[in-house]
Design a binder for these strands. Structure first.
Lengths: 155, 155
DNA sequence: TTTACTGCAAAAGGTTTGCATGGGT
DNA sequence: ACCCATGCAAACCTTTTGCAGTAAA
């Protein structure tokens, strides 16, 4: 731990910016539980622990934390962006249940190969890939409550 | 063509809703060029052709068109959602250049296998997957203008 | 005739920004 | 001392909603 903070401090200094207690608090909170989050949730978590941080500061710092490769956007849902810590985690993707919201993280070896194939085929330098798989988890398939009613014109 | 309109009309009727000229206009415009779009762009395209559609109607209809499986959300960028027509198109994913915005569509056979593997492994019923790959296209790699400066703590 | 749909304008909700103050370097 | 970062509040922008009139069924 603490490692993320060191990286971020170095990143900030290299850019000629300033290391502040607020920046450290934010990083610390994000990596304290290491789970997906959104701005409002992070803000409340911090305030509940006595921090005097403002949402503006969180919004202003998120782009920096992303550029430092410590977090990334994962999906946009319910009208706002969701993020996840990525430092230290192996790369992974998500399986999300549309009924109950459960998130299953996975990594499939094949994806690396697909990526290499794409780089060659299109002469493209890949920075990141985001695979978001949605559907119904085993539990929700059983108590079929039907909510979305998808129509399919399959072929 | 026109086929999308028939499907949508049937879908609307089956739900006990009403087929209106506005709904037909929207579908027609979306499939007239068959490309990615966002609400504002679609609105302007329609108005420029003399339509008297309102943005509210577009916003109210998009969820229905998605449920009818004619379009889907592709990514959230610049503060708003982007969509693409999917009826008639084979399933595909995107390679997006972060510098110039170029979008390359592709499909890799392997992804179907990954999906099947996930369904088995997690007993999950997959409805859709969205693979969004970002990086630099060949052209932008050459005239290296450096804009994003990504830091990597690779291992 | 019933009631869903439309356009308009206002509201809502997430994110950004201007400003005065405070604090790294 | 310089000037970047912060908190606050206002502004901004996309999306949603209330309403009164219109038109499918």
């Amino acid at each position: 731990m603490g490692e993320e903070i060191d990286l971020f401090r170095a990143f900030i200094s290299k850019r000629g910016l300033r290391n502040t207690p607020e920046r450290e608090e934010i990083i610390r909170e994000i990596f304290s539980c290491n789970d997906h989050f959104d701005v409002d949730e992070l803000y409340l978590r911090m305030r509940n622990k006595g921090s005097r941080i403002s949402k503006a500061s969180i919004y202003r710092n998120i782009p920096l934390i992303m550029q430092c490769n410590l977090i990334r956007e994962v999906w946009h849902e319910d009208g706002h962006m969701h993020y996840e810590p990525i430092y230290g985690q192996g790369h992974h993707c998500h399986l999300r249940c549309l009924k109950c919201g459960t998130v299953i993280e996975f990594y499939d070896e094949e994806l690396g190969k697909v990526e290499k194939r794409l780089e060659r085929k299109f002469d493209f330098e890949i920075i990141e890939h985001r695979l978001d798989v949605t559907g119904h988890c085993s539990e929700c398939r059983d108590n079929r409550t039907r909510r979305g009613e998808h129509v399919s014109h399959d072929k």
